[in-house]
Computed example of a mutant assay.
Amino acid sequence: MAPDISTVGGAPSQGASAFQIAALRRAGIAQLAAASVPSPMADVDLLACFVLGIERAELKLRELRGESFSAFEAAKFNDLLAARATRIPLQHLTGQGYFRYLTLKVGPGVFSPRPETESVVQVGLDFLAEQRLENPRCVDLCSGSGAIAAALATEAKNSTVWAVELSDDAIGYTRANCEPLGVKVLHQDAADLPAALEGTMDLVVSNPPYIPPNAVPREPEVREHDPQMALYGLGEDGLQIPRAITAQAMRLLRPGGLFVMEHAEVQEHSAAQLLRDAGFISIAGHQDLTGRARSTSGMAP
């Protein structure tokens, strides 16, 4: 039987020290650092919060008070640490991904939302704010988890939002994250949408697959766990799918509407040319919070 580490009279009972939050947290950080996990401290804290069902501020308070995990919680925490040390994505272990102000459902089969994509959404939101539209119409192409669509639905006032995703594996996550927010989810090819939508959108945002076939990601979390369908953009330059998405965006937008597309830093100039070739005007590049070229936008004439 596992030792009882419940508190009596405010003091942990015998055996509790082996499960102290501070001690297990330190050991976990060392374990993940040794496995070359990029953010060991943040990952340990998020896993601890997941196990305990609390926020990070509460975790810090419990650590300062010298509190402990239960034996069951400690075992679960250590199992999750061992899995993370093999570079299984944190989001796959918790089933949660954080994006802007949202907590999203994620897991195997869907691309985990990345912080850099938050800046792509901001470009679109800034445009809508400048336009002062009463009921903006927006669409997220290659939606995956639905992160972009969900953010637009919650942050663009009175908006009507569509999310388009082709993958049979990802569409369940798209629906779970978007439909409760009123987003209209379409399970189909983003390059082949109903003609009734053409010329009706104020904003099109997309984080399409864009990695060239010979540019295999270095990070094991991406290379081994993100779906290839969400990574590789096809063609020698990885831009075959982005070209199709750009052409579709032009069809969907009303005159003066904006298209924002995420891309790799090294594709900054290629993406701008791609938008020019499709007929977009007022083309501009945008950086993420790390200062890297992250997206390109253009207006429909």
Rank of each mutant, 00 (worst) to 15 (best):
V139H: 02
D43Y: 12
D140N: 05
A34F: 02
L203F: 01
V110I: 06
N78T: 13
G95K: 01
E67P: 02
Q267P: 00
T7M: 12
I245L: 09
W162A: 01
P301Y: 06
G172T: 12
P194G: 08
Q240L: 15
Y232F: 15
F127V: 00
G15E: 09
A82L: 09
H286P: 04
F72T: 14
L128W: 04
L102S: 02
L141V: 08
F72G: 09
A129P: 02
A191W: 00
R56N: 04
A74Q: 03
P3G: 02
L32C: 08
L104W: 05
C138A: 15
I171Y: 13
R56D: 02
A215D: 14
G238E: 01
A195G: 01
T94Y: 14
D277N: 10
G10Y: 07
T7A: 14
A156P: 00
V123Q: 03
E116W: 10
L93E: 01
A48M: 15
E155W: 01
F50N: 07
R243D: 10
Y210R: 01
E224A: 06
L104Q: 07
R292T: 02
A300R: 15
G199N: 05
E165V: 04
L125H: 07
C138M: 11
G15Y: 12
S167M: 11
M261I: 15
L193S: 08
D169V: 00
Y101F: 08
L133G: 08
G53W: 10
V8N: 01
A30W: 01
T86Q: 14
V260A: 01
V120G: 10
I54A: 06
E63A: 11
H263N: 03
I211H: 05
L80A: 02
E224P: 02
T7S: 12
F127Q: 02
G107V: 11
A83N: 04
C49I: 00
V37A: 04
R223L: 05
S270D: 15
P3L: 13
Q273C: 12
E55Q: 14
G172D: 09
Q122E: 15
L32Y: 07
R62K: 15
P38K: 09
E198K: 13
G107W: 11
E118T: 09
E236Y: 02
E236T: 05
D192S: 15
A163R: 06
L93G: 00
S295V: 05
A244D: 08
A30L: 15
K105Y: 06
E179R: 11
L275E: 07
D168N: 12
N135A: 13
H286N: 05
I281K: 10
